[in-house]
Design a binder for these strands. Sequence first.
DNA 1: GCATCATGTGAAAGCGCTTTCATACACAAT
DNA 2: ATTGTGTATGAAAGCGCTTTCACATGATGC
Lengths: 373, 373
Amino acid sequence: MRFHHAPHSPPSLMAKPSQPRPIARKEPAVPTLEMVAAAAGVSPSTVSRLLNGTAKVSADKRKAVESAIRKLDFVANPVASGLAGGRSRSIGVITQALGSPFYGNGLLGIEDVLVESNYAPLYVSGHWRPRDEQRCLALLESRRVDGMIILTPSLPDADLLALAQRVPLVVTGRSLLGPRLCSLDFDNTEGARLATEHLIALGHTRIAFIKGTASHPDAVERLRGYRIALKAHGIPFDAALTAQGHFIESGGAQATEALLAADVKFTALLAANDQMAYGAALALYRRGLRVPEQVSLVGFDDLMGSSYTLPPLTSVRHSIHEIGRLAAHAVIALIRGEPFSDPVPAPQLMVRESCGPVAGSRRHGRTGTRQVV
Amino acid sequence: MRFHHAPHSPPSLMAKPSQPRPIARKEPAVPTLEMVAAAAGVSPSTVSRLLNGTAKVSADKRKAVESAIRKLDFVANPVASGLAGGRSRSIGVITQALGSPFYGNGLLGIEDVLVESNYAPLYVSGHWRPRDEQRCLALLESRRVDGMIILTPSLPDADLLALAQRVPLVVTGRSLLGPRLCSLDFDNTEGARLATEHLIALGHTRIAFIKGTASHPDAVERLRGYRIALKAHGIPFDAALTAQGHFIESGGAQATEALLAADVKFTALLAANDQMAYGAALALYRRGLRVPEQVSLVGFDDLMGSSYTLPPLTSVRHSIHEIGRLAAHAVIALIRGEPFSDPVPAPQLMVRESCGPVAGSRRHGRTGTRQVV
DNA sequence: GCATCATGTGAAAGCGCTTTCATACACAAT
DNA sequence: ATTGTGTATGAAAGCGCTTTCACATGATGC
């Protein structure tokens, strides 16, 4: 495609008398809709209509076109249709980081349904940096996506509301509503409550909690779920049993060390996500504390890897993959102007081997190994 | 945007005497290059030239245009330029699965450099299914990407060679060469050799190996590295010490169980990737075998999570992130017709805590705990 | 002083589609 | 027959850019 040049060829009169076409055109030239039309003996409009199902076409022409398409091996150029029709058949997806073990699964879900609906996902990641996220937004808008799915929590609601005026929008992790807007909200509170209940049922009352990034809605909801469960069982909330882990492994490890160093006693540890739980597990291991014998550990998100930690980690399953699928279905519905209201799957506790009963349950004697500094 | 019409105004004379414009146009209308030109008092060509640096433009016009752009808040429509110019400023990236803990990082690297070069990455995943990969290829081609990065190993070389005729291509994990083709080949063999050497240096001679999917080039290279190291130290290769793990956690666990059940003795276990090492660790744990006291374990890829396994896993670092960056730089270079030849970083062994010396080194006595069934 | 060349700029022709409008033709209704 | 009422189809006008070509300039050479 790079064979033109000799731009504004200078007045040097006989510059190139009938340019011999710089090197024989070998490219078989990608077939165009127009060529299909010619081959089928119909007008381009008819071909277009057939392709998009925009209008009825008589059976004979349909056949002619179809065979022409097959013969020429024609595939419509989405760039051209995008320009002409104003739609690009692509959906923008803003995520935190493509490589994230958690969101990655969601992207897979999105991709699944988008592709089968003949939309192309355009992924961009915000890296948790508001500036990057803004840039992503701009990029996607300039690419004229037909819809967007926003998986990151840091964009301000007002921006999203404004954006939704221009393009159908699906957001997760908050509950906004608007005409071209759909929120898919996973019940983090309930998930955390479930996890805490589980620990309480095992007899734990000194349950430490490793918090996620405070600015993250998920983090606050999960903390809330923890407190709700505590309250329901008359266990007072103790801020000293709480530490910040920033949703990453190292944060979980540090939080655990802080907890351990602070000399607060706890028999169980609930981390606001699996990654922090992994960090916690390592910190515990370094101190020679055994899971679940001495400390019970619960995570949140149920990452793939959590079935393979030592011991396998009890965690709250979140089915981000399913949420991804839902989000994709939702944008498509939004684009078509159809209603959409499939419920987000409820959280589910995956009980594995990282939790055990608290030392002799209600007996406080022979506690030795369980009551942890 | 749909308010033109009355094209070849029909003979039906006063057909629609000045249509009252179907409902007031509220959209502020996205600014177009033409509007910028008008505002700046120049021709669209000039604006375009300025935008693309295609030709010199006098200082005063440049200023006029720049201020017009700023005032109108204009952003060029990539769809239109794509159609007109034949380039889309997007790069297709085919990966195995977006959510993969390993490739995910590579995607991040790709994204970093692509975005800063003003290209948009278009990710699609093949899910290890050749059919899907073909579909991805077709999708990307139809989207008129300016270049492609192929991270999956299952596409046949011939296809790639053919593809490279049409679009600049960067592939990983093989060494093809061609005019518009660039291969980025990581030295898997060396990586595996390094890992094996490490084990040997610790005194191990009965080293089991968990293989990756046989059809995967990485898998065969890693096996080769293992054998090379063995040979270099005069340790005979024993196929019985080898098991298939398919590059996934469950496969690693099964392979380990098979090895254990087969009654072959080994003191160390090298897995062809970290995910299989995680599975192996779990299988070992279930059997009550301790790492590294009874069995030394080494992985490959150095996933993020490997610093947080119990114990932290010794693994071969692969810097897929860096490879992603290189790949992106490479496509851009290819597109520009520039040469590219940055070397892929060498593998590096990250020594952590999953390996220990073999029982009393050369003394075969008091072996008890280390010689594993 | 005139022919020569370089250079910045504008007009206009697309890129490959979609969509409107108008028409030709088929029937149904008068 | 005559007029309607649809319906399938084609012509042509864009979508918002890029690029070619031609054309004024002004700079240069003899």
